[in-house]
């Protein structure tokens, strides 16, 4: 019957619409379900997982010593040319010349946080930090030197 079909059509359509409205109405009245995070306000409580890859940093111990031997494994592993290692020759205790890192230059603006440099590093000198607020007004600020001034190679790291 045409009329019956017509009426059941309209009724079915209205029912489906009301079901949808019931769902949105539920969320309108249940404010517990809100999932918004108030980002800059919750900065104090915001904890990023330890594996989060924010930027490459070099670990230094309390004596201002790092573990980077300047072997350029990370520079070779990097797909983007993010890392540039400038080496110098140190004279060690025995009076021999030894290659050491002078400047570990890191271009954050080129980095894609792929973690390949960390994997490649044989001495665990670099790691990923959990920082993520990288925006600056001047792009040159993103080029960083990771080894701290006057830092030395840690004893026993080859």
């Amino acid at each position: 019957m045409f009329l019956k079909e017509y009426i059941s059509d309209v009724a079915g359509a209205l029912k489906s619409l009301f079901i949808g409205m019931k769902r949105t109405g539920y969320y309108f009245t249940h404010h517990k379900e809100i999932i918004t995070e108030q980002y800059p306000d919750n900065r104090a409580t915001l904890v990023l997982p330890e594996r989060f890859r924010g930027e490459v940093v070099m670990t230094h111990n309390e004596n201002n010593e790092h573990r980077c031997t300047g072997c350029t494994a990370c520079e070779l592993a990097c797909p983007n040319g993010t890392i540039k290692i400038v080496t110098k020759f140190d004279i060690n205790a025995e009076g021999k010349k030894k290659k050491a890192v002078d400047k570990f230059v890191y271009h954050l603006e080129l980095c894609t946080m792929c973690n390949l440099c960390i994997q490649a590093c044989p001495t665990d000198a670099i790691k990923m930090a959990q920082t993520f607020e990288h925006s600056v007004y001047d792009r040159s600020l993103l080029t960083k030197v990771l080894n701290k001034p006057d830092s030395k190679l840690q004893e026993g790291v080859e």
């Binding site: 969320y27 404010h31 809100i34 918004t36 108030q38």
Partner: peptide, 13 residues
């Protein structure tokens, strides 16, 4: 505000 609450967010605040 209505849209925000239906979309489980806070809206302008």
């Amino acid at each position: 505000k209505v849209s925000a609450y239906m979309q489980i967010r806070l809206g302008p605040n």
